[in-house]
Simulated scan of single mutants.
Amino acid sequence: MGLFGLLFGWPLAPVRGVIKLGELIQEQVEREMSDPAAVRRELEELDRVLAAGLISEEEHAERMQEVLQRMIGPPAAPATEPDDRER
C-alpha cells in the first residue's frame, strides 16, 4: 500500500467501515427475508389475523402473495422475440 496510500487512505477508514457494515446488514436482512422458517411464520400469522377477522380475504391474499413473491424473487422478464431488423 505504500506510505502515501497509508497516509491518505487512513482518514477514509471509518467511511469504509460504515460501508462494510451496511453491506453486512443488507446481506443479513436478505437472508432472513428469504428464510423458509421466517416465511412460514409470516404466513401463519396472516392466517391467524384472517381468522380473527382483523383483515379481509382480499388483503390476506395480497399480503400472502407479497410474502411468497419475496421468497421466490422478482418475476422473470418475459422473453422477447427477435425483431426482423436484428436478423
Rank of each mutant, 00 (worst) to 15 (best):
G53N: 03
A13H: 03
L46I: 14
L7Q: 04
R41M: 06
A77P: 07
R40S: 10
K20I: 09
A76K: 13
E58Y: 00
R40H: 12
D35A: 09
L21I: 08
E66G: 06
R85G: 02
G17D: 08
Q65D: 13
G17L: 07
P82D: 10
L7Y: 03
L7R: 07
G2E: 03
A61T: 10
P78L: 13
D47F: 09
Q28F: 14
L68M: 07
E45L: 10
M64G: 10
E27H: 11
V18R: 14
L54C: 00
G73P: 00
E32A: 14
H60Q: 07
E57F: 01
D35V: 05
E27Q: 13
R40T: 13
F8D: 02
R70G: 13
R87H: 04
R70T: 11
G22V: 06
E86H: 02
G73R: 05
R48A: 13
L50Q: 00
R48T: 09
P74K: 15
R40W: 01
A52E: 05
V15W: 04
Q26A: 12
E57Q: 06
T80H: 13
A51N: 03
E66M: 11
G9F: 01
I19N: 02
L50N: 01
A77I: 08
A52W: 03
R40E: 14
E23L: 11
V49P: 04
V29W: 08
R31V: 04
A77R: 15
L43H: 01
L54D: 05
P14E: 08
D47K: 15
L50W: 03
I72T: 11
D84I: 15
L24S: 13
E42M: 13
P82C: 08
G22R: 14
L3P: 00
T80R: 14
D84N: 08
D47H: 11
P74M: 09
Q26I: 09
I19W: 07
D35G: 03
M1P: 05
